[in-house]
Amino acid sequence: MFLLCSRESRMEETLSLGSVPQGPDSEAAAYRADTGATQAFLEGYVRQRFLRELDDEETVIRSLPFYATGTGATFAAIAVAAPQLRQAAPGYAAPIASALALDVALVVVSIGCLLAALVRRGVLDVAPEAELLRSAGQVAQETREQFAEATPQELEGIILARVRGSLVAQMIVATARNRQANRERKTWRNRAFVALVGALLLTIGGLVATFAAGGLR
């Protein structure tokens, strides 16, 4: 009934929740029961999980300063150490140069993994407010036609339960997809982190070895 849309591409997908139930009074009683305390608790839980996945989508962006700082420090250290290798003993210069080359490779791998995480950004969200209002009006019209003999209070309860149920169903679908996407993003981000930490450790080792070999005097 309502729509889901991707924040990244703004592509919209229709979420089919099935046909409108046809039973009269028994269906109305069931919908009224859905507005109870248990249903409200479950709706709050679904909403919390939905918002958590939306927030987790930003974790890659929040970690960018660390990667930028680590990458810059690594390249700065290599720029300082590499020219000094000419002063190192020949037996040390080649291994240290190989270590620095591996260092650069790890940084490149880290950047590649981070880009892979960034490419996978974008979440599935509920429809814009205008579309929600339009769909709510459609639900209200269909409910009034189906339960023509119901009182205004009964109609309001049924409409509210249907709108809430439809919106919660959207959040469930969106949460499941966003959770899977966030897992993929975190996997690539973790790979980038491991590669960058390895590069930093190798950089420190390269600087120490260069100093011990006669460079950086």
Rank of each mutant, 00 (worst) to 15 (best):
G112T: 13
P95E: 03
V107I: 09
A81W: 01
A93Q: 13
I96A: 04
A81Y: 01
L102P: 06
P152Y: 08
I61D: 14
F75V: 15
V194R: 10
Y67T: 08
A195M: 06
N190P: 00
A88Y: 00
Q170K: 05
T175W: 00
F193I: 09
F75C: 05
L115F: 02
I78W: 05
L114V: 13
A150K: 08
D55M: 01
L132Y: 00
R121W: 02
G122W: 03
L167K: 00
K186T: 10
T59A: 14
L160P: 01
R177P: 01
L132S: 04
L155I: 09
Y67A: 15
A181F: 06
V60M: 06
E142N: 10
R185H: 05
A81M: 11
E149S: 11
V194C: 02
A161E: 06
A127F: 07
E154D: 13
E145I: 04
S63Q: 08
Y92H: 07
P83H: 13
R162G: 00
A169T: 04
S110E: 05
V80W: 07
L124T: 15
V80M: 12
S135N: 11
E184C: 12
G137C: 08
Y67W: 11
L106P: 03
A130T: 11
A76D: 12
P128T: 09
A169Q: 09
G70T: 12
G72Q: 13
E129F: 05
A116M: 11
T69E: 15
F75Y: 08
R144G: 11
L106N: 11
D56W: 10
L133I: 14
G122F: 03
L196C: 03
T59P: 00
R162M: 01
E58C: 06
A77F: 02
A73K: 10
Q87P: 02
E156H: 02
R191Q: 06
L167R: 04
N178A: 08
F66T: 15
W188P: 02
S110K: 03
T59V: 14
G137M: 07
V104K: 15
L115I: 14
S98W: 00
G122V: 07
G122R: 05
A77E: 11
R162A: 00
D125P: 01
R179Y: 10
L102R: 13
D103V: 05
P128L: 00
G157Y: 06
A105L: 12
T143M: 02
R86D: 10
T71R: 07
L167T: 04
V194G: 08
E58I: 09
V197K: 11
Q141S: 12
A161G: 10
N190R: 10
Q180E: 13
S166Y: 06
R185N: 01
V139Y: 04
L124C: 05
E142V: 14
G122A: 10
V104T: 12
D56S: 15
V163L: 07
A136T: 13
R191P: 01
P152C: 09
A82E: 13
A116V: 03
I61E: 14
V173A: 13
A192K: 00
R144P: 06
V107Y: 02
R62P: 04
S110T: 01
A89I: 12
D56T: 07
I61G: 08
D103E: 12
E58L: 15
E58N: 14
G70A: 13
Y67H: 15
D103P: 04
A68T: 14
S110D: 03
